[in-house]
C-alpha cells in the first residue's frame, strides 16, 4: 500500500506521516532521510525530525541519491521523506542523475514499493506563492510538480495535510474482485 502525503511547510505533514507508519501492520519500520544537512539550521531540522522519531522504533537510513539501488527489508513499513529534497539532490548534486532526475526519483519510489509492505512518501507543496523565480528554480518546480503527479498516480492513497488536518485527495479503492465477493 502506497500513501503519498503532501502539504506546505509547517503543516504537520511529517507528524501525520509517522502516525500512518505507526498504524501500519508491519513491525519493522524504516525511515529514509533524504535531506543533506546544510549548516546549523539544517542540522537543527534533522535533529528535530530525529527527536520526533525517537523511541518509535524507526531504523534511519540516509540516502541522498540513487534510491533505486536501495534495499530495504522485505515486508517492512517504510517512510520516505522528502521528495522535494530527493528531487533537488538528483538534479543538482554531482552524484545525482542530472537531466534524468524525474526517472531516478520515480523509479526509486517504484523500487521501494515493490520491496516493502506499507510505503508512506512525503512530498512538498512549493508551487503557490505566485513569485516568478530564476529559470533554474522554475525548472526545479516543474520537475517536482511532474514527479508529484506521477507519484499520485502510483499511490493508492493521497492526502494533503493542512495544519494537522488530513484531506483525502485520492482514496484507497476496494478492488472490484473484493467488492463482488463481499456482495455475493
Amino acid at each position: 500500500m502506497m500513501h503519498l502525503i503532501t502539504g506546505g511547510s509547517g503543516s504537520g505533514k511529517s507528524a501525520y506521516a509517522e502516525e500512518r507508519i505507526l498504524e501500519a501492520p508491519e513491525r519493522r519500520r524504516i525511515y529514509i532521510a533524504t535531506m543533506l544537512p546544510y549548516g546549523e539550521e539544517g542540522k537543527r531540522r534533522v535533529e528535530r525530525h530525529r527527536r520526533m522519531r525517537r523511541d518509535k522504533g524507526f531504523e534511519t537510513v540516509e540516502r541522498y541519491t540513487g534510491l533505486s539501488g536501495l534495499k530495504v527489508p522485505e515486508g517492512s513499513a517504510v517512510l520516505l521523506e522528502c521528495i522535494s529534497n530527493l528531487a533537488a539532490n538528483e538534479r543538482y548534486q554531482e552524484e545525482g542523475a542530472g537531466e534524468d532526475a524525474w526517472s531516478a526519483v520515480v523509479e526509486g519510489v517504484r523500487s521501494l514499493k515493490r520491496q516493502c509492505g506499507t510505503l508512506v512518501v512525503v512530498t512538498n507543496e512549493v508551487f503557490s506563492d505566485g513569485f516568478v523565480y530564476d529559470s533554474s528554480t522554475m525548472e526545479y518546480m516543474k520537475l517536482l510538480g511532474a514527479i508529484n503527479q506521477e507519484l499520485a498516480r502510483e499511490a493508492d492513497r493521497v492526502t494533503e495535510v493542512v495544519y494537522g488536518i488530513p484531506l483525502d485527495l485520492k482514496k484507497e479503492r476496494v478492488s472490484e474482485a473484493k467488492e463482488r465477493w463481499e456482495n455475493g
Binding site: G8, S9, G10, S11, V126, F127, T137, V162, Y163, G164
Partner: peptide, 28 residues
C-alpha cells in the same frame, strides 16, 4: 496560509513561515 511556496533563502523568512505553521497547527 503560508508555506505553499519555494523555501525562502532568507533565514528569518523561513523561521516566520515555519512559526506561523506550527502555531496554526497547534490551534487547529
Amino acid at each position: 496560509e503560508l508555506g505553499y511556496g519555494i523555501v525562502p533563502t532568507d533565514a528569518f523568512d523561513r523561521r516566520f513561515r515555519e512559526m506561523t505553521g506550527r502555531i496554526c497547527t497547534g490551534l487547529a
